[in-house]
């Protein structure tokens, strides 16, 4: 059962999977990690992104990654709009802890049910030249349907990281969470910054969705499996640290891949909760958070 090439393949598959998880979690790292907004509907937006990729791919043969990039601006505006509603109805009145949470739960549920009403519960997939191919180095497989999402996700993470640390808006977003005084000195309006940041977070869901459907077929309720994963990664990564989030995503990917290889794939959904529970119990500030 246990062999070196099985282990090596499991680790490589885990790294590729984990890289993709970074795209799933990065929007939440901004929205939950920086803004403290518990958007549990984030994976539902990723599923919407996956369905848009599916529609444009099956109709016009567009490449899914291209569709993800094109859809991102639209997602940005939807996100900004949702933050407006959230701010007016909950944040301003101090009801985000109960009603705000239930609000996102309701949004998640509506998205899932609407997708089921329109497309049913059948699995949908996309076509692209690279999806069936596999590169092989030694005895280790690099299936392109995993490698492409890994590469796109790593590029997305690098771009967001650069944006956060080198632009005025990026630094303002970080200031919203950590340093209100600095924010005042910069003369920025926190609500507008949060709206921008929330839009940015949702925009990443468009890209993550297109990657999700490259990896494998998607149906509306798949999103729920990613809630635990995304939150586990953000918490383990230290709430809002982009670098920490990426490393945490790789860790989760590797652990899940090992569990799937050596215990069976039906156990892998529980891994994220195990990671989350251990993190919360042992080190709630995450691996890279300030204690």
């Amino acid at each position: 059962m246990f062999s070196a090439d099985l282990l090596a393949n499991a680790v490589v598959a885990g790294i590729l999977l984990g890289g993709f998880y970074a795209a799933v979690a990065i929007g939440l790292a901004i929205v939950f990690g920086q803004l403290d907004i518990v958007n549990i509907a984030h994976p539902a937006f990723i599923i919407v992104g996956a369905y848009i990729a599916y529609i444009l791919n099956s109709r016009f043969g567009f490449d899914p990654v291209l569709v993800g990039l094109l859809a991102a601006p639209a997602f940005f505006f939807v996100g900004a709009l949702i933050y407006r509603v959230y701010f007016l109805a909950f944040e301003r009145t101090g009801q985000e802890s109960l009603s705000g949470l239930a609000f996102f739960f309701g949004v998640m549920f509506i998205i899932e049910v609407v997708l089921i009403l329109i497309y049913g519960v059948d699995y949908r997939l996309v076509q692209a030249g690279y999806i069936g191919q596999t590169w092989r180095i030694g005895f280790v497989d690099f299936p392109l349907r995993m490698l492409v999402p890994f590469a796109v996700s790593a590029a997305l993470t690098a771009a967001i990281y650069a944006y956060m640390s080198h632009t005025f808006m990026g630094r303002a977003i970080q200031a919203v969470a950590q340093d209100r005084l600095a924010l005042q000195l910069m003369g920025a309006d926190p609500v507008r910054i949060k709206q921008w940041a929330f839009g940015l977070g949702i925009a990443t869901a468009a890209i993550a969705g297109s990657l999700l459907i490259i990896i494998g077929p998607v149906e509306p309720s798949v999103g729920r499996l990613y809630i635990g994963r995304a939150f586990a990664i953000v918490v383990l990564g230290g709430m809002g640290s982009i670098k920490g989030m990426f490393i945490a995503a790789l860790i989760l990917g590797i652990v899940e891949s090992m569990v799937a290889t050596f215990a069976g794939p039906s156990w892998s959904p529980a891994v994220a909760f195990g990671v989350l529970a251990l993190t919360l119990a042992l080190r709630p500030a995450g691996l890279f958070g300030r204690q």
Binding site: V38, L101, G228, A232, S266, P269, F273, L276, L280, P284
Partner: peptide, 28 residues
């Protein structure tokens, strides 16, 4: 006991994840 000593949102997230874990257990 596991989560209530932390911020309330962690409890909410943990409940969601718990449902998935128990479902995984039952499936297996």
């Amino acid at each position: 006991y596991l989560t209530l000593r932390l911020k309330g949102v962690y409890f909410a997230i943990a409940t969601l994840a718990m449902a998935i874990v128990i479902e995984t257990l039952v499936i297996n």
